[in-house]
Design a protein around this nucleic acid. Structure first.
Length: 281
DNA sequence: ATGGCAGAAGCATTCTGA
């Protein structure tokens, strides 16, 4: 089962590129971020024509996430839910559409667009840390419920200096600060694995290149888009790659898609009607 | 240090992103 994540920076501007890419790659699930459109205006039909079902959670101009899947998503939830932490008032996050989750093929798919934070001095930075802390509480709750998780999206954090083209220049700054990395690690804890790092231990692999300063041609990028899987899924992991080719398109998104291949081909959806019959791990 | 680039809103220019 091929699962992909892609910050497309406007679904409407990028639509034909996304469809072309899906025709090439044939993903089972595609999670999108920065769709930048209200739900009523999301172009659902082109995906349905390809045999996908679409779940959206968007807003005007900013943010917006979607799950596009061959198997219709169940138990679709929009935003944070399921926990109540006195120091994390999830109501304050409701005006920014950054998280959608659903059950597909027995796996809890969680699609996130983590706030950028602007700079360490900005009040947006505090929002980013609060948002990541709420994501940690959300994952705690999923873990309690025994969910098998695939958490993916644009995290706006480079987990280590291997994930930055010029760590000397950027270490400690936005997307590379200790606070952000600690907050991300608190989300992951020991339950989630960076699928990409199972296969690739070296630097030089990027998922985002700034539009400015010819960054893609100079290959000055960052790895800030991630797929994290429950450790119970690690034995099912076939591959995890970044497909940088769409970044070379005319009028590209500034992000490239990341995809993971899980060895669940023989799984019949009906098996998961009964939770006792989860695939053997 | 500043600006470079791109998208949306909306029609000139500002806001936001990373």
């Amino acid at each position: 089962m091929l699962i992909a994540t892609w910050n497309v920076n406007s679904i409407r501007t990028r639509l034909s590129q996304i469809i072309d890419w899906m025709n090439q790659v044939n993903p089972d699930i595609l999670c999108l971020q920065e769709t930048k459109v209200i739900d009523e205006c999301f172009p659902v039909e082109p995906f349905e024509k390809l045999g996908y079902s679409v779940e959206v959670y968007g807003q005007k101009s900013y943010n917006g996430v979607a799950i596009i899947s061959k198997i219709k998503a169940k138990n679709v939830k929009k935003g944070f839910y399921g926990f109540n932490n006195s120091n994390q008032n999830i109501e304050i996050f409701k005006d920014q559409k950054r998280l959608i989750s659903a059950e597909i093929n027995g796996i809890k798919i969680i699609n996130v667009y983590v706030p950028n934070g602007s700079s360490l001095e900005s009040n947006k930075f505090g929002y980013k840390i609060d948002w990541l802390n709420s994501l940690a509480s959300f994952l705690d709750e999923q873990e309690k419920n025994g969910e098998i998780i695939c958490l993916m999206g644009d995290f706006n954090v480079a987990p280590s200096n291997l994930d930055i083209h010029d760590p000397k220049k950027y270490e400690g700054g936005i997307m590379a600060s200790e606070m952000e990395r600690n907050a991300l690690n608190n989300v992951l804890q020991k339950r989630l694995i960076d699928a990409f790092r199972i296969f690739e231990k070296n630097t030089g692999h990027w998922s985002w290149w700034d539009y400015r300063n010819n960054a893609y041609v100079l290959n000055k990028g960052w790895r800030i888009d991630h797929i994290y899987i429950s450790k119970e899924l690690s034995s099912k992991l076939k591959s995890c790659v970044i497909d940088s080719s769409p970044r070379g398109n005319l009028q590209p998104s500034d992000h490239a898609p990341v995809m993971v291949d899980l060895n669940l081909n023989d799984i019949n959806e009906d098996i998961f009607e009964d939770e006792e019959n989860f695939f053997d791990i």
